[in-house]
Write a protein that binds this DNA or RNA. Structure first.
Lengths: 140, 140
DNA sequence: ATAGGTAATGCAACAGAAGTGCATTATTTT
DNA sequence: AAAATAATGCACTTCTGTTGCATTACCTAT
């Protein structure tokens, strides 16, 4: 189990420290995207800065992708296998539930091609749907 | 000129105070979306809170729409005539230039329909393209 | 016109997230 | 084991967004 986590980090040229393995494991078990504060609350013993830089490193090495769900709080979710965060191939839709406040990935829902006016170059696209998720919908 | 501005506000049930007219006029002259800080810098004499609440009121009364361009700073742009910020009809693509940091609307580019899994309800959609705008592209 | 009520404004202060600098600890290399 | 490099933890700062409260402007009814 731990060996798999270590391999994952090493594959992305990230040294497998204890903290990084814990964060990676946590992200694996959580289906929803996690904010820095979420991590901070889960890892009582660790410093916010360390978690902040861990997420930053993970994002740079394409282990996680940053998600802006419109709440003003950046969230992070594990990338899919062989994801390189490429526009047109890797970027997918995110859903933010305004009731439970969870943000989840729809990896099957790739973002459609956006036709821009002449002279505009696209590097990145973000598509976030806000509403009510299936779990909260049932509880209504 | 001022009469038009007043009419606009009154049409949306917003009392046309001096500050509100100035903010509306400023938003009309600026093509790019404006942040609270942008307004604050432009109106040296006015308080941040007043501008904040002016924008809040404008957004509630559908005079402007809030834009989350991924920078972490909320920006505001005038709605189009007869916009009711309805999903499927009014929501359009936004573009954020990572060089000049400007965020602009593409009102002709409506956001395509997103097919969600069963049980999910969509209230709002945000689609932001990040890259290089036509002006900055020329200067390269 | 004026008194009373409502709405808008301005000041102060706070909260939360993001980020930086620096000292300390751990890890790797020689 | 010593030196170099990387990771961590603490303190502090900045920026944005927000609220409470007192004051000012505005509108309405008598």
């Amino acid at each position: 189990m731990n060996l798999d986590l270590e391999k994952t980090l090493e594959k992305h040229n990230v040294k497998p420290t204890a903290m990084r393995l814990l964060v990676l494991q946590f992200l694996l078990t959580e289906k929803a995207a996690m904010s820095l504060t979420d991590l901070e609350n889960h890892f009582d013993r660790s410093d916010r800065t360390t978690l902040f830089r861990t997420l930053k490193t993970f994002a740079e090495k394409e282990i996680v992708h940053k998600i802006d769900d419109g709440t003003g709080v950046t969230k992070y979710a594990l990338c899919e296998e062989d994801c390189h965060c490429e526009i047109e191939t890797d970027l997918h839709v995110h859903f933010h539930c305004k009731i439970c406040n969870e943000t989840i990935c729809f990896p099957e829902n790739k973002i459609p091609y956006i036709n821009l006016p002449d002279g505009f170059i696209a590097d990145d696209v973000s598509l976030t749907v806000t509403g009510i998720c299936n779990k909260c919908n049932k509880s209504l």
